[in-house]
Design a binder for these strands. Structure first.
Lengths: 198, 198
DNA sequence: GTCTATACCCTGATAGAC
DNA sequence: GTCTATCAGGGTATAGAC
């Protein structure tokens, strides 16, 4: 398993192409050409195209911490800020794939869901850390899902209008919402005082 | 132009199939079979498949008031309630198409945007009617966009998780957000009093 | 405007030698 | 594990008589 063995080259090429052109518009031939691999080799590793997609989704999932969260959160302490650091940097690449596939086969669908869940978990963690600043009535998990909803919906609108500001506007609204919910970052001592006051 | 002329049958069949199976997974042959039309006739009316899609999108756009807004708003007076009546009933059929097409040609993209804009306009109208109940700082248009963002993002998540409750959860969060912004429905007299008080 | 037949291409996938 | 050559099928679109 060298850094550029055949299988890896295939998955990497597929990842890139699926991202750039979408799944349907990427042909096996495209992947072979980009990866500089021959047809026979691809089918040695993968039974078919959708298995290649599954491998790509696995790679996304496995890399989420190291490749996405860590760099986005470098130097960011406040958990709420972390959420928006994430939104500021990424437009969840999985989302485009998720809707492009109208009825994905089960292995693929599972992996899409697994990726979504990983994003929601990451945001949920942030909210958990900001727990004391959130009012009691807030369903944390649901709010975490809502962050992802905003991200996905924003991506879709931005793409259709060919204008990223639609994405930004969605994030701004979400920020407004969460700011309205959460108290400003404070030390736990101050928070406790506030809680007592209510 | 009878009610079931060839062209209409084609557009209607395409609309139905694009909705059920998606655009890519619907073949021309599928459309022909459903519409009970022959290949030659289709190409007499439409240069190609994407032109058929454009016609479908036009039909969606032209029907938005009569077929979507009117039935959803029957008996609903409060403008904020109208927004959620819409969300309660529809899952914006255009959204699925919008992301399925990774890079739609310009005529199609324009029509997708036009449809989105029509939805945003409808929601914007509601917000406009509820204007006095919204705080001054709210960017109305952006909030209207955000409603659509929630809708689209919710559709995507619900589909991936194969669970509509993800959509419902998004709507609930949005409701929570807007409730936090808007004052309760009141007569204009009371509203005026409140405004004076501030 | 409608019909049948069909061209033509690109797709995913396979065969089988090396 | 890798290579070349190739298949079978379905896709969009066309031809040309009626």
């Amino acid at each position: 398993m060298e850094p550029t063995d055949t299988r890896s080259r295939l998955v990497l090429a597929a990842m890139q192409l699926f991202w750039e052109k979408g799944y349907n518009s990427t042909s096996i031939a495209d992947v072979l050409q980009t990866a500089k691999v021959n047809s026979g080799s691809l089918y040695h590793f993968f039974p078919g195209k959708s298995d290649l997609l599954a491998a790509v989704l696995d790679m996304y999932h496995d890399g989420i911490r190291q490749m996405l969260l860590q760099p986005a959160w470098a130097g960011v302490k406040d958990p709420i800020d972390k959420i928006f650091a994430l939104l500021g940097r990424y437009r969840c690449p999985i989302g485009s794939l998720a809707l492009e596939l109208h009825e994905p086969d089960e292995p693929v669908r599972e992996r899409l869901a697994k990726n979504f869940r990983a994003w929601i978990d990451a945001i949920d963690d942030c909210l958990q850390q900001a727990k004391v600043r959130l009012p009691a009535g807030v369903t944390r998990r649901e709010l975490a899902q809502f962050v992802l909803t905003t991200m996905e919906g924003g991506v879709m609108q931005a793409r259709t209008f060919r204008d990223v500001s639609y994405f930004d506007a969605g994030v701004r609204q979400l920020h407004h919402y969460i700011n309205g919910l959460a108290r400003a970052p404070t030390t736990s001592a101050i928070v406790k005082k506030r809680q007592l006051r209510q």
